[in-house]
Write a protein that binds this DNA or RNA. Structure first.
Lengths: 243, 243
DNA sequence: GCAAGATGTGACAATCGTGTCACCTCGCGA
DNA sequence: TCGCGAGGTGACACGATTGTCACATCTTGC
C-alpha cells in the first residue's frame, strides 16, 4: 500500500502527433501503439490545438513545418493555457538545423528531434520524457500505517492524535514519507531541507531527527539510523511492538 | 544568452559532469556556470559515483567512454541505488552512433547527446530535462497569477521570489488561496487557523493579516479588507498597478 | 461633521524554534 | 580488546514567532 512510487498503476498514455506528412504520422503511430500508447493524430496546427484541449494527451509530438499555422505558433498557444502548458512537447523539424533546435529548446520544448530519425529512437525518447513526468502524483493527503499526513493543512496525525510539528520537522518527515520504507541519505536530507548552500552543520540533522523522534512517541524506533547512509522511516516495521 | 522562462529555479541547481576530457569538462562547466548552475567535476567513473553519492546533484552528465569503468557500468551502479536512481542522467558519447543512442535511452537515460555538439544546445537540453523534472514536482502546486504555492515543500513564491512565511502565515495564505477572489470570513479564518477553541483574541487575526501583507510587498493591496466580513485575496485584480 | 465601531499599526514580553557545541554511547574493524 | 568515527543527547544562546495591547486611522450611519 505504501509503494505508490514503485509500480504506479499504468494507465494507458496518450500521445498527440501534430504533423502533416500522413505517412510519417502512421509510422510513428504504429511504433507508439506497439509500445502500448494510445495515439491521436492531427494534420495541422488548428486541429492539433483542438485535440489537445479536448483530450489532454500525456505528450504532444509537434512538427514545426505545418501548413497555415507554424509549429512555433502552435506551441505559443499551448503555453498560454495554464493546463495545456503542463503537457510535455517533443518538437520535430525537417532539416533540424542547429539554430532551429536551439530555438525550439529555448521556447521550452522537452526534446527536439531532427528528421530523419529512427522510429525506435523516437519511441525511446518519448518514453524518456514520460518516465520523468510520471514521478508526478503526490497526493495532498496520504496515509501510511498509523500516520496521516495532511499537506493541505500542514498537519500530521499519528494514531489520530495531531502532531505539533515545526516547519523543519514537517519538511523532514515529508521527505521520509515520500520514500517510506527506504533509506534516505543524509546529504539528500540536508539538501532538501536546508538547500544546498552548505552553510548548515551536518550535525544539525542529528538534532532535528532526535526532535522528530521525540514527537513520534512510541513509534520513534520506526525512524531507524542507517550507519554511514542516513535514516529510514518504516511505520509498518514488524520489529517494534508499536507497529 | 539563454534565459529560463517558466520558473527560474528557486534553489541553485547542481550538475555533476563525469567526463575524462578535461578541456570539454571545462567548456561545459563554463557554459553551465554562466547560466547559474553549480558544477561538480569527475574525471572517471569511480569518483563520479562517489561525488554523486556525496552531493546528490540535480542532474548527471555522463560520458560513456570513460577510462577503467565504462559509462554503462556507472549508470548501472547509479540505478542500483534507490535515491541516485532519481537523478536524471544525460548521456554523451564520442561518435554517438544510432545503436549507442538507442542503448543509452533504453537503459533509462533522459537524453543522449552525440559528440560533437554545440555548448548552447547542451545547456538548453540540460535545462529542458530539469524543467521536465521540476514540472513533475510542481504538479501538486497551486499557481494563481504571480503566486506559486508549493504545498509539497511548504513554500510559496511570488514573482518567482521565495516568500519566507511563518507556519501561521502559510495557513492563512492557504485559506485565502483556496477561496481566491472571494471573501473569507473572519470567523472562518480564526477557526481554521487557530482551531475552534475560541481562546484566541480576534485582534490577533488583524495583526497576522498585516504581517502577511507586509510580505506580499507590492501585492499587499490585493489582500483587501471587507468590512464586517473578513478579507479577500485577489492576485489578478485590475485596480492595483501590480497586477 | 460626529460618534461608534471596525481595522491598521507599532511595540512588547513571553515563548518557541534553531543551529551549534561538548560530551556520551555505540558499532565496527583491526 | 581497543580505538575510531558515526551518531545520540542535553544544554545553550540567539533570533524568530506569537499573542496582546494601546493608540492611530478609517468607515459608516446619522
Amino acid at each position: 500500500m505504501v509503494s505508490s512510487h514503485q509500480h504506479p498503476p499504468s494507465r494507458k498514455r496518450t500521445i498527440l502527433i501534430v504533423e502533416d506528412e500522413k505517412d510519417l504520422v502512421d509510422l510513428l503511430a504504429y511504433n507508439l501503439e506497439a509500445e502500448g500508447f494510445g495515439v491521436l493524430k492531427a494534420f495541422d496546427g488548428v486541429s492539433g490545438l483542438e485535440k489537445a484541449r479536448a483530450e489532454f494527451p500525456d505528450l504532444i509530438v509537434l512538427d514545426l513545418n505545418l501548413p497555415e499555422m507554424h509549429g512555433h505558433e502552435v506551441y505559443r498557444q499551448l503555453s498560454e493555457d495554464a493546463s495545456l502548458r503542463q503537457i510535455p512537447v517533443m518538437m520535430m523539424a525537417a532539416r533540424g538545423m542547429l539554430a532551429e533546435r536551439i530555438e525550439g529548446l529555448s521556447l521550452g520544448a522537452d526534446d527536439f528531434l531532427p528528421k530523419p530519425f529512427s522510429p525506435l529512437e523516437f519511441v525511446l525518447r518519448v518514453q524518456a520524457i514520460l518516465r520523468r513526468v510520471e514521478r508526478a502524483s503526490v497526493a495532498s493527503d496520504f496515509t501510511v500505517g498509523p500516520m496521516r499526513f495532511d499537506k493541505g493543512n500542514f498537519q500530521c496525525f499519528l494514531d489520530d492524535e495531531p502532531l505539533d510539528l515545526t516547519k523543519t520537522e514537517l519538511k523532514l518527515l515529508s521527505l521520509f514519507l515520500e520514500r517510506h520504507g527506504e533509506p534516505v541519505e543524509r546529504a539528500q536530507l540536508l539538501r532538501d531541507v536546508w538547500g544546498n548552500t552548505g552553510d548548515v552543520h551536518s550535525r544539525t540533522l542529528d538534532t532535528h531527527v532526535k526532535r522528530l523522534r521525540g514527537k513520534l512517541g512510541q513509534y520513534s524506533c520506526c525512524l531507524e539510523t542507517i550507519r554511514n547512509v542516513g535514516y529510514r522511516l518504516d511505520l509498518e516495521c514488524d520489529v517494534c511492538e508499536a507497529c
